[in-house]
Structures are given as structure tokens and as C-alpha cells.
Amino acid sequence: MKRMLTTLLSVASAGVLAACGSGPAQDAGPAGGSTGGAITMGFSQVGAESGWRTANTVSIQDAAKAADVDLKFSDANGEQENQIAAIRSFVQQGVDVIAFSPVVRTGWDAVLLEAKNAGIPVILTDRAVDTEEPDVYKTFLGADFVREGQWAGEWAVKEFAAAPAPVNIVQLEGTTGSDPALERTTGFAEAIATDPKLTVIASQTGDFTRSGGKQVMEAFLKAHPKIDLVFAQNDDMALGAVEAIEAAGKKPGQDIKIVAIDATRDGMQALADGKFNYLVECNPLLGPELMDLAKKVVAGESVPARVVTEDQTFDQQQAAAILPERKY
């Protein structure tokens, strides 16, 4: 997509991006940020809160190199204000395309409108946003989080079909207000509603971190003497829960069963070892498809408004079989 720039905009100061945790900005180059024939992408990442996020970042950085895309990368350290500052900096630099994985779902209208008014297309990755402004992003690339939660819940219904009532479930939620936390909660609740003996007796955010999962699970174990199942909205929180369960003298995967979402290598290892019972995949390797979409929107080609990544589920045997070739 061609855009007309009547003036050259100044490059954002180093201090802005330093506040975003990414260090000083490099010169975006002439003519809308393109250098050496490559398109320039400004990308704002949520942070590095989990193994999934680290794999996602590596995928994007590697894919940018392979696709000859000049990547301006910013780490928001889990703070929305950092992402907004980074996106505004990308607009000032005149990059060709902006992509970001939103920390939370709301609060993006103003900055997305600024990018639109500057003629810079935006791609959402991994997480969606709620916005009142029309046509402020071109496409959203990521998993179906509601479906992921449903798959986890459907497994729980089958696993506890013959169990006596009640079946007490504790839920380790992701970052409050984030797209995956909201939608995985919804999907899981919809699935377990088919069996009234399955009840979520406690639900709290562990912020998608291993330490958060451990801390919350410790509190759950003290408050609730009978817990049958942990539903963790990512592997890292589930791994933290394993530490808390073992410290309490119980066996994860046996005394308390665990279903989680992500299927990273550490999670798959825990499943193969019998400490998890079931995993729903959320593939972080979005880089190649993101670069393909970026080139298309910059060229003015039409792209789908929603691109859903393909995921699968794993039991213990499947995890053990796939571990040797797992890429993340």
C-alpha cells in the first residue's frame, strides 16, 4: 500500500524507546523507513513473561531476517503505556507497517487512529483488541483462544465423567484484561457447563508467569483442602503450580490433575513425565506468516481480516513421542 508523506517526520528520541525496554532506536532510513529495498516493520512485543513469549519473539526476529524485513523491535515489559509509546515512535519514524501483540484488550483507539491517519497499516499478532475506530488494523493473526479453553474443558468433562460430585477446579488466569485470559476463561466455562458437578471454586491471575502460578497455587492449597483439577491458562503458570503441589506433599498429575494451554517444550516434558495430564497447543511460531502478511498489506494487497493459527492437543503418550523434535 503506497502512502504519500508530505514531510519527513523526525525520528523518536532514544529515551522513548529506552523507556519501553528496547534501547535506542536505529535510524529508520529514507522513504518511509525502507532501507536496502526491505520494508521496515515496527514491532511491539508484550514482554518476556513466559517460554511461549520467548519462542514467539525468536520466531519473529528470525523470520524478519529471512524475509529481508528491517525490524524495529520493542519490548513493552508487560506495560500498555510502553506499547503505546513504542507505536507512536514507530509512527514518527515513518515505518512501513506496525505489528504488535497487545498487553490488554482495551485502550488502543487513540494510538491506532494515529497510525491510520499516518497511512501506516497495523497488524495484530497473538492477541486482539476492542476498538471503536473503524479500519484501524488490517488483520489479526493468532490462535482461537475460546476454542483452546473449550478443548481444555472438554477434556476435563471426559476425564471426570465417572468421578463422584463435586469435582473442584481451580483456575490460574492469565494477565487481567488480556485477550487470551478473557477468552480461555469463556471457552473453559462453556465446556464444563455440560456437567454440573464440575465447578471452578477459585480463579485468580498468575499473570502468565511461573512465579505467579506458584504463588497463587500455594494460596489455593491453603484455602481449599480438596482440589481435583488445575486449569492453567499457560504452561508457565502450570509449572509453578507443580512446584507448589509438590511442596505441599502431593503428586501433580495424580493427587491433583493439571490441564494447561501452550504446549511449550517444558510443558510437554511435564506432560511426558506425568506431572501434567493434558495440553492444548498455542503455537508461538507466527513469524513467517506475519512477514508474509506484512509484505501483502504494504503492497496494498487484500488480506483476510482474521488469520487463525492451527493448533492441536496432546496426551502423555503423544507428548513423549513428539518431544525429540519439538521446536519450542
Rank of each mutant, 00 (worst) to 15 (best):
A162L: 09
K295R: 14
F43I: 00
E49T: 12
F43H: 01
R184F: 07
K226H: 13
Y328C: 06
L293G: 03
L279P: 11
R306N: 03
E133P: 08
W108S: 07
Q93N: 09
N283S: 12
L17Q: 07
E289Q: 15
I245A: 05
V129D: 04
A66F: 05
N117V: 03
I39Y: 03
E173K: 15
N283C: 08
L271A: 10
L124I: 11
Q83W: 03
E325N: 15
G206P: 01
P225T: 04
Q312D: 06
E81L: 11
A48L: 13
L8S: 12
R147G: 02
Q233A: 12
R265M: 09
D126L: 15
E325D: 15
D273T: 13
N168H: 12
F145N: 15
L285Y: 11
G94P: 00
L229S: 08
D130R: 11
S203K: 15
G119S: 10
D195P: 13
L113P: 00
A163I: 07
C20A: 15
E81Y: 12
V157D: 00
T139E: 08
A263V: 11
V303P: 09
P284K: 09
W151N: 09
D68L: 03
G94Y: 02
V103Q: 15
A244S: 09
T54S: 15
K158Y: 02
A165S: 15
K2E: 05
K250H: 04
V308N: 05
P102N: 09
D311R: 11
A152M: 07
I169V: 15
E301V: 14
N82P: 06
V16D: 01
W52H: 05
E218K: 07
A85I: 01
V58G: 03
T35P: 00
R326Q: 10
G142M: 08
